[in-house]
Design a binder for these strands. Structure first.
Lengths: 201, 201
DNA sequence: GTCTATAGGCTGATAGAC
DNA sequence: GTCTATCAGCCTATAGAC
């Protein structure tokens, strides 16, 4: 449990936003969870949006420690690291009885008219995630020339879509199906020369 | 403009939920847009959730007329039909200055503790969408044996993720990147034999 | 920096006349 | 089936004492 008032508020807000959504979570609930009174919260964060920004900055700062590091513990192969990251989200879904959703994805869709600071921070989180994937892809010798940024983007969109579908289905099947197709794609990239029209849209 | 009160309410609710989100859109705004008074709305739909269910049933019933039909007009090739469907979402993003999001995806992530009727209807919408893609895939002679349900799922997750990222980036680039990678995958399926470990996860 | 008290507005839902 | 009036509760934000 974080000790400073600000850190405790951010920690509880992060948890409640992830569990219940941003709009649905009242400052009252956050105050109760963090054990602070209205004036203290207002003193630390002048608005609910300022608190959201602090939460998004926290996700960004802690991505390696809380998400990527644990996922990659004991995994050295760069391709397997990509799927270890996805496996982490799979486990979150299982562990929460399919209540889990990517907290960043939640906010990305929930905020319909985002302040530019908020939008930029969500994008930084996405971008950072893709960079980790891109770094893995850079370590692989692919048999056919392929735009690796495109592949890294596909990995993220697959994760976000797979979590969305599995949550809705209350079943891991759609998650596994899309990840299996993604792995099929990546294994074909490693193993074979590109067809003549590859990479065009 | 629909004539019956119920249809007018559903039509405006559908629009407002898509533009602003479910939680954010008040019944007051829906009443104002549809030009009905509180008692009438309550008479037609006993709760906000009942109205949401009517909206989701409307999406399901009108998927072919409003989405799939227009997307496939003048497109006969089954693979091109899949990408014509995706191109439709691309155009929605462009036309709305990246405010657009898949209305079903919005609701799927926004409702954190969904009533089972709501959840089942969201899933039916996803499933129906994947069926259209699956029907296209069935018309193609693929060179290598591949689980086509996995591919259909990947198409949907790619669309949902691509819309999420493009909205956040306020740029079509991430959408195009993931769709380009998806097309690269599908073209490899058509053109080449599978590697020995294809389709495994 | 912490606490109490509350403002001002919005929400979904509803009762009851017509 | 339509309208008016309103309730009780929640929300964010804030003023002001300590």
């Amino acid at each position: 449990m974080p000790t400073t008032t600000k850190a405790r508020i951010v920690s509880e807000a992060r948890r409640l936003f992830a569990e219940q959504g941003y709009a649905t979570t009242g400052l009252t609930a956050i105050r109760a969870a963090a054990g602070v009174h209205a004036g203290s919260l207002y003193h630390a964060f002048p608005s609910k949006q300022a608190l959201l920004i602090a939460v998004l900055e926290d996700y960004l700062a802690q991505m390696d420690d809380r998400l990527v590091g644990p996922a990659w513990a004991g995994v050295d192969d760069p391709i397997e690291r990509i799927f270890a990251l996805l496996a982490r989200y799979r486990q979150f879904l299982i562990d929460t009885g399919f209540m889990f959703g990517c907290p960043i994805g939640f906010i990305a869709l929930e905020i319909h008219q985002p302040d530019d600071d908020v939008r930029a921070l969500i994008w930084e989180n996405f971008n950072n995630w893709m960079k980790r994937v891109r770094d893995c892809l850079d370590q692989v010798e692919f048999a056919s020339p392929t735009d690796l940024d495109n592949v890294a983007t596909l990995v993220l969109t697959t994760m976000e879509g797979a979590v969305m579908l599995a949550r809705t289905a209350r079943s891991i099947a759609p998650f596994d199906q899309s990840v299996t197709a993604l792995r099929d794609y990546i294994s074909r990239l490693s193993a074979e020369p590109a067809p003549s029209n590859s990479g065009q849209s």
